[in-house]
Amino acid sequence: MTSRPVTRIDAKVAALSAEGRPALVTFVTAGDPDYDTSLAILKALPKAGADIVEFGMPFSDPMAEGPPIQASTLRALKAGQTMARTLQMVRDFRADDATTPVVLMGYYNPIYSYGVERFLADAKAAGVDGLIIVDLPPEEDDELCIPALEAGVSFIRLATPTTDDKRLPAVLANTSGFVYYVSITGITGTASADPTRVADAVARIKRHTDLPVMVGFGVRTGEQARAIAAAADGAVVGSALVNAVRDSLEDGRATARTVPAVTGLVEELAAGVRAASRAG
Rank of each mutant, 00 (worst) to 15 (best):
L136W: 05
P147M: 02
A121N: 12
I132N: 00
V102M: 08
A44G: 12
K124R: 15
R85P: 10
D36Q: 15
R85T: 15
R85I: 11
P138F: 10
K43W: 11
P46M: 06
Y108R: 07
G115D: 04
F55G: 13
I69M: 02
T86G: 05
G80P: 04
Y114Q: 09
N109Q: 05
P138I: 09
G49N: 11
E143A: 14
A123Q: 10
E65W: 00
D61Q: 01
S60H: 02
E140N: 05
L74K: 15
V103Y: 01
L136K: 03
M89D: 09
G49S: 10
P46W: 08
G152D: 06
D129W: 03
D51V: 06
P137T: 03
A71S: 13
Q70L: 06
S60K: 02
P46E: 07
Q70D: 07
S154R: 08
A79R: 03
S72R: 11
S38F: 06
I132S: 00
G80Y: 04
P138V: 10
G80I: 05
Q70A: 09
P68T: 06
T73N: 14
K124Y: 08
A98K: 13
E143G: 09
G80A: 04
G56S: 06
F93L: 05
E65M: 00
S154P: 03
L131P: 03
M83W: 14
D51P: 08
S154I: 01
Y112L: 14
P101A: 08
S72I: 14
E54S: 07
K43N: 13
P67D: 07
A121Y: 14
A71R: 12
P101Q: 07
K78H: 06
E139V: 09
S60P: 02
G115I: 05
A148C: 05
L87Y: 09
V128R: 01
V134W: 00
M63L: 13
V103W: 00
A126I: 10
D51C: 06
L136C: 07
M83V: 15
M63F: 11
K124S: 08
M63K: 14
G152R: 04
V128H: 01
Q70R: 13
V153L: 07
A123F: 10
S113H: 15
D141G: 02
M83H: 14
F55A: 12
P46N: 08
E140S: 06
A64D: 04
G66I: 03
M105R: 00
L149H: 08
P147T: 01
L120G: 12
A95E: 14
M105H: 01
P68H: 02
Y35T: 03
